[in-house]
Computed example of a mutant assay.
Amino acid sequence: MRIAVVAESFLPHMNGVTHSLLQVLAHLRRRGDDALVIAPSSGPGDGPRAAAGYPVHRLPSFPLRNYPDVRVAAGTVARVRRLLADFAPDVVHIASPFVLGWRAVQAARQLGIPTVSVYQTEIPAYAARYGLPWLEQLLWQRVENIHGLSTLTLAPSRFALEQLQGRGIGRVHLWRRGVDTARFSPGKYDGAWRASVAPEGGCLIGYVGRLAAEKQVEDLAVLAGLPGTRLVIIGSGPLRQALQDRLPEAHFTGFLGGEQLARAMASLDLLVHPGESETFCQTIQEAQASGVPVVAVGRGGPLDLVDPSRTGWTYAPGRLDELRDRVLDLAGDGIKRRAFGRAAWEAVQGRTWPVLCEQLAGYYVQAIEIKRRALNAEARTYLA
């Protein structure tokens, strides 16, 4: 197949969308498919012009105020339409569509090319976190318009699937994310790293992710003062300084990637994730592959990933007293914590990226067939 991948964000900005796209592109390369990536520029240096051996076409972009790592593509539907027409794909994969994705789905529709739109970010939920609650309904209208025009929509969790269906969006299918169980494994445990972040020892409670408003990292202040524990914050983002002021006893590592992240993850005793707007939450799977139990908020993607009283705990949104109690339960019981960690590791075996990416290729074929049948029906109606 020929697949045009339209990415709302891409390298060098590393996040869940970028990570999954790199896995998809690597799989398409192994299959022998042809692909083109269309993505925003990254400012100075403009970012890589190729990924997995495929060309990356960069569109002009501008940074979001107070969050320069996130860039919004400029340009028009006509410009995206020209790029798609020149490449002539069989299908367009639109990752986490919102601004560039809205142009892409319109352009593809005008050209009669099927689209598979991957819902990955609950952007409307960000409105209140950024002090703009009045924007939420307008943002949902954009989401509904994009996915209403898409041939297929893929949701990463049952929560997200039901959320989209509840807003009247049809042709929604479940497509979860894979996890690299070779990179993330209990064998990456690093005692020296543990000693560097907690010289006095104790239970390491970790958070891994962006330091941004939608992640609600400030909720972890409720864990302050838990005896025999050390909070470790792994990641970077616009709120780092504010969070360091709010969580003075925590250790901040900054951004970690590759083997550094794998070693740090496997060296934690417990992962916590407080963000309520996660459609999936890849870091939970990575912790589980590392043999680390998880305490996460009981909304969104974590509901599919955390099996309470077996691989970790969930707590009700807003109930920070529950978060503290759940963490205390595992931090204070090493036997239970290790049992949960073993169960977490077992739970993710088999969820490999090749398996999930081959399922995605099947959705591409399904979208192409849906579009073909629709075009044939239109032709028959015209001839009649």
Rank of each mutant, 00 (worst) to 15 (best):
2 R>E: 07
3 I>D: 02
3 I>S: 05
5 V>S: 13
8 E>C: 11
9 S>P: 02
10 F>C: 11
17 V>C: 07
20 S>T: 12
20 S>N: 09
24 V>E: 07
26 A>Q: 13
26 A>R: 14
32 G>T: 04
33 D>G: 09
39 A>T: 10
40 P>E: 12
42 S>K: 03
43 G>K: 09
45 G>M: 08
45 G>P: 06
46 D>H: 09
48 P>I: 10
54 Y>S: 03
56 V>F: 09
58 R>Y: 03
60 P>C: 13
61 S>N: 10
65 R>I: 15
65 R>D: 09
66 N>Y: 13
67 Y>E: 10
68 P>I: 11
74 A>R: 11
75 G>H: 11
78 A>F: 07
79 R>D: 14
82 R>Y: 11
85 A>V: 09
86 D>F: 06
94 I>L: 08
95 A>S: 15
96 S>Q: 07
97 P>K: 08
98 F>V: 06
102 W>Q: 15
107 A>S: 12
110 Q>E: 15
114 P>M: 05
128 A>W: 01
129 R>T: 06
131 G>E: 06
134 W>M: 09
137 Q>S: 13
137 Q>T: 12
139 L>C: 14
140 W>V: 14
142 R>N: 15
144 E>C: 10
144 E>R: 15
147 H>V: 11
147 H>M: 05
152 L>T: 04
152 L>M: 11
152 L>P: 05
165 Q>F: 02
170 G>H: 12
176 R>A: 12
177 R>A: 06
180 D>V: 09
186 P>L: 12
187 G>E: 15
190 D>P: 05
191 G>P: 07
196 S>I: 03
196 S>W: 01
197 V>Q: 01
202 G>Q: 02
203 C>E: 03
205 I>R: 01
213 A>M: 11
214 E>D: 12
218 E>P: 00
219 D>E: 13
220 L>A: 11
221 A>I: 01
221 A>D: 07
223 L>T: 00
225 G>W: 02
226 L>Q: 06
227 P>R: 07
229 T>V: 03
230 R>E: 00
230 R>P: 00
232 V>T: 00
235 G>N: 03
237 G>I: 01
240 R>G: 00
246 R>E: 02
251 H>L: 05
257 G>D: 14
258 G>L: 09
259 E>I: 03
259 E>N: 14
260 Q>F: 09
264 A>N: 04
265 M>A: 09
266 A>C: 07
267 S>F: 03
267 S>D: 04
268 L>W: 00
268 L>N: 00
273 H>Q: 12
274 P>H: 01
276 E>P: 10
278 E>N: 01
289 A>L: 06
292 V>Y: 03
294 V>S: 02
295 V>T: 03
297 V>S: 00
301 G>C: 02
303 L>G: 05
304 D>E: 10
307 D>A: 13
309 S>R: 15
310 R>Q: 14
312 G>Q: 08
312 G>W: 06
312 G>M: 04
315 Y>G: 00
315 Y>R: 05
316 A>D: 12
316 A>H: 12
316 A>V: 15
317 P>V: 08
322 E>F: 04
330 L>F: 08
330 L>P: 01
330 L>S: 02
332 G>V: 04
333 D>S: 10
337 R>S: 08
339 A>P: 02
341 G>V: 04
349 Q>R: 11
350 G>I: 08
350 G>E: 08
354 P>F: 04
369 E>K: 14
370 I>R: 05
371 K>Q: 14
372 R>K: 15
375 L>K: 12
378 E>A: 14
378 E>H: 06
380 R>Y: 07
382 Y>W: 09
